[in-house]
């Protein structure tokens, strides 16, 4: 499994040596991190219809960010809080989105911008406001994933690292609360 091999190598990187700028450690890190950074950057730029050279430049931008200013960004990584691959994936996505915004501002006519990036919610529609504290943040998030993003229960369970049954029960409890609170307002 390519991914397991890459992740294993990433987790074996000596972070102190890497942040000190040792060439050999940096080279090993680049080799191990390239598949993940490439995958994240490619996926993040997918809707922007950029060229292959742009994708390579965006991947390079991630590495530049990591080692810039004496590895300042890399030094913010805390191994006690998350694995290096997960943190690296988040950093890569942030960098790729920034890259796409810069490139779009510089070159793209408005017709080339994906509709999702320009979509604005219709603020003229009168909607009921959910009182603060009626739902927990987790309940709200699960309802958003289910109905706004149209994801199924298994996907949400994978994203939130919880059981599918927990997703179902959280969803059910949230709707019960909403129905109870708005029993008279909602037909």
């Amino acid at each position: 499994m390519e991914r397991n091999a890459g992740v294993t190598e990433l987790n074996q990187i000596d972070l102190r040596s890497l942040a000190a700028g040792h060439k050999r450690t940096w080279d090993a890190f680049v080799t191990a991190a390239s598949p993940l950074i490439n995958a994240v950057v490619r996926r993040s730029l997918n809707s922007f219809r950029l060229s292959e050279d742009d994708v390579l430049d965006a991947a390079q931008d991630v590495f530049v960010r990591l080692c810039a200013n004496d590895f300042r960004l890399l030094k913010t990584y805390d191994p006690a809080r998350a694995g290096l691959p997960t943190w690296l994936a988040v950093v890569s996505r942030s960098a790729a989105v920034d890259f796409a915004r810069r490139r779009r501002q510089a070159t793209s006519p408005i017709d080339d911008v994906p509709e999702s990036a320009l979509a604005v919610e219709d603020v003229h529609v009168e909607k009921l406001k959910i009182p603060e504290g009626l739902l927990t943040e987790r309940q709200t998030l699960i309802l958003k994933f289910l109905y706004d993003e149209e994801r199924d229960v298994a996907e949400i369970a994978q994203i939130l690292k919880i059981d599918a049954q927990t997703v179902r029960s959280t969803h059910h409890k949230a709707l019960l609360r909403l129905r109870e609170h708005f029993r008279e307002e909602v037909p």
Partner: peptide, 13 residues
């Protein structure tokens, strides 16, 4: 997107 990428084999860059 990140949950999907982190749960799959990665292609060679």
């Amino acid at each position: 997107e990140l949950a999907d990428i982190l749960g799959k084999p990665l292609p060679q860059p």
